[in-house]
Amino acid sequence: MIRAQVIVRPRASIFDPQGDAVCRAIQHLGVSTVKQAHVGKCIELELEGNDLNKARAQLETICKDLLSNPVIEDYVLTLKGAEPPKVKAASKPAAKKAVKKAASRPVAKKAASKPVKKTKVKKTVRRAAVKKKKGK
């Protein structure tokens, strides 16, 4: 099993009225340190199989053709799953077990790729900044 996450975001050059409304609402609630908000989509997919490279190639096409519109949006695709373990032909049952074990790992907690990780770090920093200001 492969799990994929696609984050679709409005391009920076395109005015995002939803993000603007959300930003103003946040400011209205007293958090004036928030200067920008962008509203996108998070699409989660589950795929059969365990070939990450093949899955990535297929999903890149889907991201470009369907899940995002390159005129107005950017996307970040992250994949999580287990590569088939390299084992000898004789030990097939063991291989199956390894795949099962790998696939059953919990997913969402840790960011799988750099872009998502970066966003999380930024959020943490921003939260910290808000707390600091509130403390004053």
């Binding site: 005015f15 009225p17 939803q18 409304a21």
Partner: peptide, 15 residues
């Protein structure tokens, strides 16, 4: 969306 016309239509600015 089908590419038969250029550009795209997005949410009204006023929402």
């Amino acid at each position: 969306e089908a590419g038969l016309l250029p550009g795209v239509l997005v949410r009204n600015t006023s929402l």
